[in-house]
């Protein structure tokens, strides 16, 4: 986690800086937790190529977390490794979408598709941020994210239009995951002001584009049925019982060797 965004001439006010720090943490938390869930398939995926593919995807998502947290560090945030390995479940702000156990292959692919499309569209919009360091990070990450979208879109299609069993599992995954996916579009505290200043993308506009894109793929192309999304749901500070054991495993090496300088 070492790439330093270039210094920008954009001046942020203190409230803007605090809101942006929170947003960057939220974005990184989703990437870290999803990367861990994807990494759980290493050595267990249905075929070798997919084992490698998910490891690649996880590595990219961790790379993006590194970009967000390095940017946060230049804004006064903590060291990226401290943020990743020394916060407990009460402090993580990831969505419940990404912390749910990895489930079967259909669950993993549907989740990754819902996430990748949301991330790619958000990043694409964030390349137009008036805050240059964020625009730079987004321009870098969106180029990588397109490969995820290609891959997971194809898998969802293959599973949905495959056998009755694969279709049943894919629909079950979508039914369970769809309400959680809406959480990706919950703004953080202070986000409205950053959006007004064109520092962050308009989340509602990204949400609308995402709904259109995934509906065309999941419903029109794959013949799946979208359940209703809940109108209200708890925020990112409310987790399932699945996050704590994930963090315990993910952070165990760092916490056993707090003075380690080289991994």
């Amino acid at each position: 986690m070492t790439t330093t965004p270039s210094i920008s001439g954009t001046e942020l006010t203190d409230p803007q800086t605090q809101a942006l720090l929170l947003k960057l943490t939220v974005l990184a938390d989703d990437e870290i937790i999803l990367a861990h869930r994807d990494g759980e398939w290493t050595g267990h995926a249905p075929i070798l190529e997919e084992d490698i593919a998910l490891a690649n995807i996880a590595q990219d998502e961790l790379g993006h977390a590194g970009l967000y947290l390095s940017l946060a560090q230049t804004l006064g945030g903590s060291d990226p490794d401290r943020v990743a390995f020394w916060r407990g479940p009460d402090d993580y702000r990831n969505t419940r979408l990404v912390e749910l156990p990895k489930g079967d292959w259909a669950f993993t692919m549907v989740r990754q598709f819902l996430y990748d499309t949301a991330e790619a569209l958000w990043l694409e919009a964030a390349t137009r941020s008036t805050y240059a360091p964020l625009a730079e990070v987004a321009a870098k990450a969106v180029r990588e994210e397109k490969f995820h979208v290609q891959h997971t879109a194809l898998w969802v299609e293959r599973l949905a239009l495959g056998t009755p069993e694969s279709e049943r599992r894919t629909q079950a995954a979508l039914t369970e995951l769809w309400p959680h996916a809406a959480q990706l579009f919950q703004p953080v505290e202070g986000e409205a002001e950053l959006t007004a200043a064109d520092i962050l993308p308009d989340l509602n506009a990204v949400h609308a584009r995402w709904t259109d894109l995934v509906t065309r793929h999941l419903v029109d192309k794959c013949g799946l049925t979208l359940p209703d999304a809940p109108t209200t749901q708890p925020g990112r500070d409310t987790h399932t019982e699945h996050l704590a054991p994930l963090l315990e495993e993910m952070q165990s090496v760092a916490r056993q060797h707090p003075d380690a300088e080289v991994w």
Binding site: E49, I52, A53, N56, D60, L121, K146, F147, Q150, H151
Partner: peptide, 30 residues
């Protein structure tokens, strides 16, 4: 075309044919 669903055409490095199939969209390196 940052968000495209189809991959770009690729030519075999040995014989130059375009009659190739992608067998894995991710490889041994990113």
């Amino acid at each position: 075309q940052l968000i495209q669903l189809d991959a770009e055409p690729t030519r075999c490095p040995r014989c130059g044919s375009l009659n190739v199939r992608m067998t894995a969209s991710f490889g041994p390196t990113l």
